[in-house]
Nucleic acid binder design. Structure first.
Lengths: 140, 140
DNA sequence: CGAATAACGTTAGTCGCACTAACGTTAGCC
DNA sequence: GGCTAACGTTAGTGCGACTAACGTTATTCG
């Protein structure tokens, strides 16, 4: 049986999710916040639609997450002068700090997650997953 | 650097989940049904509590899932004469057929999921994930 | 030009899965 | 006989993925 049991992936993800949720709960963050802040930090400001594509977060969910981030002062929405349909979303200095904080937490969690694996194995796993995901992204 | 990005695991799982959900939607099944039926089929009847431990499904969710399976005639609940607190849950012949049907679907999905990987790589991925999960199961 | 079409942001709501809290019932232990 | 633990059940929370519908603004094309 050389199949990848799909439940195995789900279970691994469930563990990962639990670790992340626990790690974020302490600082009042959720997964979407991290994904958005780090995307904005890494790839710069963007319209909400573009941001949604970048982070694979649905526009409908994005609105709420951005509301929360904006209320906390981590993010700024401003109308795009070139296109009145668009909001340009940019990270604030406080948001940058927040991103760094969350990234640090995530890094620790990743180490905990792969504690049973050697660095080489972790890299192997990462590569395999990356290819798996890339394949399904392309053919979506 | 050579960390396993936790979002990668989530994304891979999301793809897997989507494939499974799509595959099951057509036959009106959900993940819990498959997990329960195949566990009952493979390891025999059990009390709900034991079944929950076996499948890692919470007792509270199990009740609903078993209600659905029982209503469809795939499963039978009978009081345990040896312990009045317990229900003995057993799969029916129809349930066995259903399990086979779902297993077939899952197998096809697994192939689709790992289409980008060679059999050897799939096995490698499976092994790594298994160890990752086992580690967190033990230390939970 | 004007009308159709498409992209944008927003609101509201569904679904699957993991997880917590509380309750009454039944078993086992000392 | 009383305490504790396990059992099944109901109710509800939270996150993440996903759909439907609406009004607004751009773009394209006959």
């Amino acid at each position: 049986m050389d199949h990848l049991p799909s439940w195995l992936l789900s279970q691994a993800a469930a563990h990962a999710h639990r670790l992340v949720a626990d790690g974020f709960a302490g600082v009042g963050a959720k997964g979407y916040h991290y994904r958005l802040l780090s995307s904005l930090d890494a790839d710069g400001p963007a319209s909400q639609a573009a941001l949604g594509r970048r982070t694979r977060i649905y526009l409908s969910d994005l609105v709420g997450a951005l509301n929360e981030l904006e209320a906390a002062g981590y993010v700024r929405r401003s109308p795009d002068p070139a296109d009145k349909r668009r909001n340009v979303v940019a990270v604030t200095p406080a948001g940058r700090d927040r991103a760094a904080e969350l990234t640090e937490r995530v890094t620790a969690i990743q180490e905990e997650l792969t504690a049973a694996l050697s660095p080489a194995e972790t890299e192997q796993l990462t590569g395999l997953l990356r290819r798996l995901v890339a394949h399904h992204d392309r053919t979506e």
